[in-house]
Amino acid sequence: MSQKPPERHPPAWLRPHGRPWSSTTSRLVYDNPWIRLEEHQAAAPTGAAAIYGVVRFKNLALAILPLHEDGTVSLVGQHRFPLADYSWEIPEGGGPLDRDPLESAQRELREEAGLEAAQWREVLRAQLSNSVTDERAVGFIAWDFRPVPKAPDATEDLAQARVPFREALECALCGQISDMLSVAMLLRAYHMAREGALPPALARQLLS
């Protein structure tokens, strides 16, 4: 079962002002199955001429926070190439832009955590590094699990840990968990538990 957040009428202050950016010419700098890099000769909203490099993503970023009935969460640890760093994160991955995000998130949870969830709730839509990329993300909370075989990607060497939610939240707040989607999803779940937006028994476990 999957639930989406209710529609909310945006407040007046969210309306954009002024002129948008415009591109006069562009060229493809680099392309692979996951991203393409473009260079644009552009005009800023102020009218000033500018050069702009944009990374176009070919997949939607997906984040899944697995909440267990005992108040623990499933995390995965792995080495990340761009920052040459080790990162503990919630299960994450990518899904084709033309596919239902829930379907791709369910696949990622199976592959990385070896879990299938009966309950899913979409709780986050976000833009990631929107000054230089067009990458968008969708975040889900999942619960009520059954174990299934894991099937990580050929490049993934994953560790797995099941830790108390409050411990994971504290690690996010002090910077020991620094992946932005993990931080955002842990804070989102805490807010939902405080506001009564999660099943009461689950919320009590997260807040205890």
Rank of each mutant, 00 (worst) to 15 (best):
K58G: 00
P200K: 04
L65W: 07
T24F: 04
G196A: 08
G196W: 01
A105T: 03
L207Q: 02
A63I: 10
T133K: 00
L37T: 11
R80W: 14
W13V: 10
S131A: 14
A43H: 04
Q106H: 05
A44P: 02
L124A: 06
D98S: 11
L62N: 03
I177E: 04
V29E: 14
A126S: 10
Y190K: 14
G139E: 03
A44M: 02
M1E: 11
A197F: 01
P20H: 00
M180P: 02
P200A: 13
H40L: 07
Y30R: 15
Q205A: 15
D85G: 02
A172F: 10
L207P: 01
L187W: 04
R27N: 10
I141Y: 11
Q3R: 12
V55M: 13
V123E: 15
N59T: 15
A159H: 12
P6S: 05
A172N: 08
H17Y: 01
N32W: 00
P6V: 05
V163S: 09
N130P: 15
G95T: 07
S182H: 01
P101Q: 02
T155V: 13
T72M: 02
N32E: 10
A197R: 12
K4I: 08
W34V: 03
S74K: 10
A184T: 06
A48V: 05
P91M: 06
S129I: 10
D98C: 05
P82H: 10
V73T: 12
H9R: 13
L181C: 02
Q3D: 12
P96A: 13
A184R: 11
E89S: 09
P82A: 12
Q127I: 05
S23R: 10
L128N: 04
S87L: 15
R146N: 08
R110F: 00
L67G: 12
V148D: 08
V132H: 09
A201N: 06
E112W: 00
A42T: 01
L109Y: 05
S104E: 09
L206W: 03
L198E: 01
G114P: 03
R110I: 04
G18R: 01
E39C: 01
Q41L: 14
P11E: 00
R27L: 13
S23A: 09
V76L: 10
R27Q: 13
M1R: 14
G94N: 00
Y86P: 06
C174E: 12
L173C: 08
R146P: 05
A50E: 14
P5L: 11
Y30T: 03
Q41A: 13
Q106K: 14
K150S: 09
F57R: 01
V132W: 13
V148A: 13
L102A: 11
D179L: 07
A189G: 11
A126V: 06
L124M: 14
D144F: 07
L67T: 05
V54H: 11
A172H: 08
R121Y: 07
Q3V: 09
A84H: 14
R107L: 12
F140C: 13
D100F: 04
P10C: 01
G175M: 06
P16I: 04
V29M: 14
A193R: 02
R8V: 15
A49I: 05
W13M: 11
C174W: 07
V132I: 12
V183K: 08
L37W: 05
D98V: 03
L181Y: 09
G18E: 03
P91S: 07
P101H: 09
R125S: 13
M192G: 04
A137L: 12
P152R: 01
